[in-house]
């Protein structure tokens, strides 16, 4: 049975159990997201995918689509709120795009362009987050963490290693690794783990390959993330 909901006034077909975001992507319609990944269950922490469904704010990644639902996504109101969420993420960490190895491949940066964020608006928090360069193949730069938990989930659910976890809470929440010393080199993390390839920002970096692909020729340098993401999923 073909079931539909309305996304910004246009119909989107869905199958039972699909979330709003899944159905939209499958139909070639983009809804911005950061913590969502097609291979994992919805997480719902970044809230970039907020939409209004029948007038109520919900996370598009988590809410199953329902017949006849009216969903607003690409509207000035929702995009304004998404921009503010991005601004919050930018002031929370230490994001210096011009000197970051992930520049051009970074989803946070790409979303900022996508949603036309031109300033951070809020006061920077400037947290102190030392890097961990102990591992022979991987560098961890916690300054850029946005707490999407993709590395946590990939290591736990796919690699079966539980390398990463979040500890503390609230604004003090931070990433830790599975070692009493707190150093990545004391874990069994390997450069070919899925968790080593899943960070949407620049926390988990491979050593000795920095800037191999020049800035200017990277994923989001020529096309906005809304197009790149749709090409990947098609």
């Amino acid at each position: 049975m073909n079931r539909e909901f309305m996304l910004d006034g246009l119909p989107v077909a869905f199958t039972e159990g699909q979330t709003i975001l899944q159905a939209a992507r499958a139909a070639g319609r983009y809804i911005p997201s950061l913590c969502w990944h097609p291979d994992f269950p919805p997480h719902g922490s970044c809230k970039l995918c907020i939409v209004k469904a029948n007038g109520r704010h919900v996370s598009a990644c988590a809410l199953p689509a329902r017949e006849g639902m009216e969903v607003e996504s690409d509207t000035p109101e929702i995009n304004g709120e998404r921009r503010a969420l991005l601004q919050m993420l930018f002031v929370e960490g230490n994001h210096f795009c011009p000197s970051c190895e992930k520049s051009g491949n970074c989803q946070l940066q790409a979303q900022a362009y996508e949603l036309e964020m031109t300033s951070a608006r809020f006061d920077y928090l400037f947290p102190v987050r030392p890097v961990d360069a102990s591992h022979p193949d991987i560098l961890l730069d916690f300054n850029r963490c946005i707490f999407c938990e993709l590395c946590v989930r990939a290591s736990r659910d796919v690699d079966g290693k539980h390398i990463f976890a979040l500890t503390e809470r609230g604004i003090h929440k931070h990433l830790v690794v599975n070692a009493e010393s707190g150093r990545l080199s004391d874990t069994d993390f390997a450069a070919d783990d899925l968790a080593a390839h899943i960070c949407p920002v620049g926390v988990i970096l491979h050593k000795r390959v920095g800037f191999q692909r020049p800035i200017g020729q990277r994923d989001y340098d020529h096309e906005p993330i809304s197009q790149v993401a749709m090409e990947e999923s098609s």
Binding site: S45, K47, V91, E92, F147, E168
Partner: peptide, 10 residues
């Protein structure tokens, strides 16, 4: 705040 989601944590 548990710090899970962006709007509440920040």
């Amino acid at each position: 705040s548990c710090g899970f989601c962006t709007p509440c944590r920040l």
